[in-house]
Design a protein around this nucleic acid. Structure first.
Length: 423
RNA sequence: GGAGAGAUGGCCGAGUGGUCGAAGGCGCACGCCUGGAGAGCGUGUAGGCGCCAAAAGCGCCUCCUGGGUUCGAAUCCCAGUCUCUCCGCCA
């Protein structure tokens, strides 16, 4: 959520910058400003009422003590009037506040100045490429054939047990998963991240705190009996650690990493992109989450992106980095880099990481703040990124490392897999 | 699942109708003291919102949450949530 002060002080800037995200905020901003004014006026009159009541109550106490009964009774009558006005004022204020809040969450985060305008994925800017992204011969198999050939992932079985999008990893497939998780976690720890094992279900407050609610409700699995949500990413529980927290400046940066299974309903995605490991309802991911001082968050974004890049380099996968354009960047992000690996058999770029700076947008909802040098409380900045999401990394490894003899395990993973080929 | 106890500031803990945003202690910060440290002494130490150009100042709200009683609620009543203990079940 944006800070309302921004709309008070500089509404035009908000409108202009949101244009980059192809979002026309003109009417919404006007509406919010009106609501905000009404809200403050009402609050003022309610406060005045309450002040009179507070004073009156004290006075009545005094009057009774002094034995001035009639005077006290007279005041009581006045109090009854005030109370009546208070009731209507309160109801109206609550209504206004809820409406204001509901409108505020409709405003996306402002994009950073580096975000280029654009319609969609095709307008993203390639800022870096690495490795050999040429295609393999016509004999190269896509991973959904490879996993059958070597019997390491069983989609049919997942179908039987649960449904589409819940694959079963078997034998060396399962061990590859475990190796990747360990490799990613160990690397993150080496880079100064603290490992967290979060809950896989969160309550409503947490889902709201990171912005999954009220918007993306349909994207999460909901456990209705207890009103819990299955996490779509570890970002949700890990960031919510800091909900309602006030940090010291010296606490920055807070660097956490977490492995978790992620659950996504993916309502509305069909077609060829969902084939094999490309899009699943349950998948594994290592997430890095950083809470940072506003002055340093962009520096940190670069570091996080570089860190994610280093993982792909070590795995020997060709990849590129995109700076997302206004049309493709998420609602809540100010600047996002996507990392895509090249899958030689599918002849396609696959997104394996997305690293974003949310600036204070998430922090505002989370009430995640810090005290600055002068003792003022201010909103912190939050950042997160995948480092990395497993299924597509695995898909790329399987495809790019296939040989006549089997799938060669990338060097860095061998200490974790304890085997060097899948055959 | 059954029975009971509880929820107060960063923490511990007092407070059962008004002068309580809240004693006292711990912690923390600053100052004095010291060669330095400790001890000791002193001062300060929640958050949100509004009025104000801003600071100062003033006002409102917050003692788990939401209602209620009352002129007045941390304190009384109702509902809910959470935590703890015991029993049962269980990886």
């Amino acid at each position: 959520m944006l800070q309302i002060q921004l709309l008070r002080e500089n509404p035009q800037e908000v409108i202009d910058r949101l244009k980059i995200k192809n979002f026309d905020a003109t009417d919404l901003v006007a509406e919010i400003r009106q609501l905000d004014t009404d809200n403050r006026n009402l609050k003022k009159s309610l406060d005045d009422n309450l002040m009179e009541q507070n004073r009156g109550a004290k006075e009545i106490g005094m009057l009774f003590k002094e034995g001035k009964r009639e005077e006290a009774e007279g005041l009581k009558a006045r109090m009854a009037e005030l109370k009546e006005a208070e009731k209507t004022g309160r109801a109206k204020l609550q209504e206004l506040e809820e409406l204001l809040q509901a409108k505020m969450v409709l405003l996306p985060n402002l994009p950073n100045a580096a975000v280029a305008p654009g319609k969609g994925a095709e307008d993203n800017e390639i800022v870096y490429t690495e490795g050999d992204a040429t295609n393999m011969g016509p004999d190269a198999l896509p991973h959904w054939d490879l996993v059958k050939k070597y019997d390491i992932i069983d989609f049919e079985l997942g179908n039987k047990i649960t449904g589409a999008g819940f694959p079963v990893y078997k034998g060396k497939g399962a061990r590859m998963q475990r190796a990747l998780i360990d490799f990613f976690l160990d690397s993150a720890i080496e880079h100064g991240f603290t490992e967290i094992q979060p809950p896989y279900m969160v309550n409503e407050d947490s889902a709201y705190g990171t912005g999954q609610l009220p918007d993306k409700e349909g994207q999460m699995y909901h456990c209705q009996v207890d009103n819990f949500y299955l996490i779509p990413t570890a970002e949700v529980p890990v960031t919510n650690i800091y909900r309602d927290v006030i940090l010291k400046e010296s606490d920055f940066p807070l660097k956490n990493c977490a492995y978790s299974a992620c659950f996504r309903r993916e309502a509305g995605s069909y077609g060829k992109d969902v084939r094999g490991l490309n899009r699943l309802h349950q998948f594994d991911k290592i997430e890095i989450v950083v809470i940072e001082h506003p002055d340093r968050s962009y520096e940190t974004l670069e570091k996080m992106t570089n860190y994610a890049k280093s993982l792909l380099t070590k795995l020997g996968l060709p990849f590129r980095v995109l700076r997302l354009c206004g049309g493709d960047i998420s609602f809540t992000s100010a600047l996002t880099y996507d990392l895509e690996v090249y899958s030689k058999a599918q002849q396609k770029w696959l997104e394996v990481s997305s690293v974003s700076n949310f600036e204070s947008y998430q922090a505002n909802r989370l009430k995640l703040r810090y005290k600055d040098a002068t003792g003022k409380t201010k909103l912190a900045h939050t950042l997160n990124g995948s480092a990395l999401a497993l299924p597509r990394v695995l898909a790329a490894i399987l495809e790019n490392y296939q040989t006549d003899k089997g799938i060669v395990v990338p060097e860095v993973l061998r200490p974790y897999t304890h085997f060097d080929i899948i055959d």
